[in-house]
Design a binder for these strands. Structure first.
Lengths: 166, 166
DNA sequence: TTGTGTATATTCACTGGTTAGTATACATGG
DNA sequence: CCATGTATACTAACCAGTGAATATACACAA
């Protein structure tokens, strides 16, 4: 049931994650994911109904860790609120210098699936963004910032811009 | 020779433009482009060496008109420099409301081709961005803005953020 | 004017390879 | 014996790119 961590399933998601992120979703075949995970495509299809399901699971698995990472960057930064927000961008810039950096997985996925507006993966990406924006807004509100919602929105805009590659 | 406008070639690019932008590059087959252009795939391959060539031509064809549009939005806006910059974002926001809006074609293309770093289309996209940033910088410099380059860079960042979909 | 050659442009039919997804059988532990 | 999980081997579709033939147009010689 929900929450039951299935090691095989997680191994598949982990393999998919690496391949989908570095190569792109449409460029990676289900066979390639299965091979990377060390099992057969048929086994993969036992754990996932379809490739679309796998894509959705890939993004869903990135959701929490990604948010947690951002929050950690924020929390662990010294200084006032402004410095903490800046810390997120600084860390991001550092990551972007890494050769494996390929931009935001959520943004890239939604770019690839732009012709499938109802795709579950796109909904997951949108929800991810909304969660982060909401967290920012609440954080600003608790700090007594006026126009917290507006500021959160602007920061998200800048963040998406930073995420853009090329 | 260069500059010789070939109507068939342009018809193909026009068809490719519509399909690539609305559906995504990898989701659109060469056959589909040929059919949309009202000719055979083989004819398409007479005018373009490969699909990659066609992709590059698609982006190259978007380069000048896109820049011209942004400049026009800027030039035709009333008010001071700040208002003129804001006009770009206002127009963009209006476009983004249109149902056909799918974000920035250059960004989306480079997202789809992220696994092919040397692809000519990616270079065209990068050059497009650089051109616009350079134009912004020169415009700011002529207006006597201090830190024109820095400001141009920041605006581009915001712009990319605005372009992001989802 | 007529015939002929040549470059441009277009088509039909095909190949070789890849892909998402499946039918079926085999294992293994409770 | 049965549920869970895994593998082999397949299908049906799709797709980028090609070989070979054909049509059109224009230049130039007879």
């Amino acid at each position: 049931m929900a929450g039951t961590s299935n090691p095989t399933r997680e191994r598949i998601i982990s393999a998919a994650s690496k391949l989908f992120y570095s190569e792109g979703i449409r460029a990676v075949s289900v066979d390639a994911v299965a091979e990377k995970a060390g099992l057969t495509k048929r086994t993969l299809y036992y754990h996932f109904r379809s490739k679309d399901d796998l894509i959705a699971a890939y993004l869903a698995a990135r959701d929490q860790p990604n948010l947690a990472l951002f929050k950690r960057w924020f929390d662990e930064a010294d200084g006032n609120l402004s410095a903490k927000v800046r810390a997120i961008f600084v860390h991001l810039a550092r990551n972007a210098g890494h050769p494996k950096w390929k931009g935001c997985g959520f943004l890239r996925t939604s770019a690839e699936l732009a012709n499938l507006p109802g795709h579950p993966a796109i909904k997951i990406g949108a929800a991810h963004k909304k969660k982060f924006e909401a967290w920012l807004r609440v954080t600003f509100e608790e700090a007594g910032i006026v126009g917290a919602a507006r500021l959160a929105r602007q920061i998200l805009l800048l963040l998406d811009g930073s995420f853009a590659v090329v």
